[in-house]
């Protein structure tokens, strides 16, 4: 790893610590990291869209035309039409002419809806309904793993759970008696579903922290050239950068403790 790469790695570790410092309290380093992410993301998105979309899909298509002919003399002149529609979107900034932006928007939504509705209906509604209405395998009801999706128990639970979940969201009838019991079963099923999501979310958040620990360890290994393969670019600057960041972090923590004690004694 070259020294410049190591400096970028150090920046990453600094930004990690700056972000995690928010867990203690809001501070300028966290704000810096937060604004940096937003700024870099916005800048990167614009560049990607420019070079990935506008250049190949518009400018390169019209490059054999002239601006004074409005590119209509280009061999692929029809690309002028979506370009004009795209420009019309900018009329949103004018109070007087903002209605014009409804034309490209209407066209876009119309095409998207036409593509989406049949496929979404088929794949997210119909196929899910078919999957719920399978014949329950009674022979497999008490055998094997009852939590397996192929077991009769799981099939019955999916069927009843779906019905009960729908009943819970039916508010035209008061949730009393048998109907209320089914609705209560429905809310239990929903809560178990939310619980599973919560558990996975916890795992996801811990995974992020693990990744930062792994990268911090890798940074320490690079700083002291302790990996299995020796770094040919290694110099004394690597540990100096390491110690500078550590000293900065420790210094900031000591300052925070001193401020805290001052406030407490005041």
């Amino acid at each position: 790893m070259e020294f410049s790469d190591f400096l970028w790695m150090t920046c990453g570790i600094f930004l990690t610590l700056a972000t995690f410092s928010f867990l203690y309290k809001d501070n300028p380093f966290y704000k810096f990291a937060e604004h940096l992410v937003v700024g870099v993301s916005a800048g990167f998105t614009i560049i990607v869209l420019w070079h990935g979309t506008l250049v190949p899909n518009l400018f390169q298509k019209l490059e054999d035309g002239n601006w004074f002919m409005l590119w209509l003399n280009s061999s692929e002149w029809w690309y002028v039409v979506p370009a004009v529609l795209g420009l019309l979107m900018w009329t949103r900034f004018s109070k007087k002419y903002s209605w014009v932006s409804r034309w490209p928007m209407g066209l876009y939504i119309g095409i998207s809806t036409g593509i989406a509705i049949p496929l979404e209906m088929s794949n997210r509604v119909n196929k899910q309904l078919y999957a719920m209405m399978v014949e329950i395998d009674w022979a497999n009801f008490f055998g094997g793993n009852i939590l397996s999706t192929t077991s009769g128990f799981a099939q019955l639970l999916i069927f009843l759970g779906t019905i009960a979940g729908l009943v819970y969201f039916f508010f035209s009838k008061e949730h009393k008696g048998v109907f209320g019991g089914v609705a209560t079963f429905g809310i239990w099923i929903l809560m178990i579903g939310f619980g599973a999501s919560f558990g996975y979310t916890v795992m996801a958040r811990v995974s992020l922290f693990i990744n930062r620990m792994q990268d911090t360890k890798a940074w320490g290994v690079e700083a002291f050239n302790a990996s299995d393969v020796a770094n040919p670019h290694y110099s004394s600057m690597y540990p100096i950068v390491f110690y500078l960041l550590v000293a900065f972090v420790v210094g900031y923590i000591i300052k925070e403790i001193m401020d805290h004690l001052k406030r407490k004694n005041a």
């Binding site: 579903g193 599973a196 999501s197 996975y200 979310t201 916890v202 795992m203 996801a204 995974s207």
Partner: peptide, 8 residues
């Protein structure tokens, strides 16, 4: 999938 998405 990420953990947040998987149950969906």
């Amino acid at each position: 999938l990420t953990g947040v998405m998987v149950s969906q």
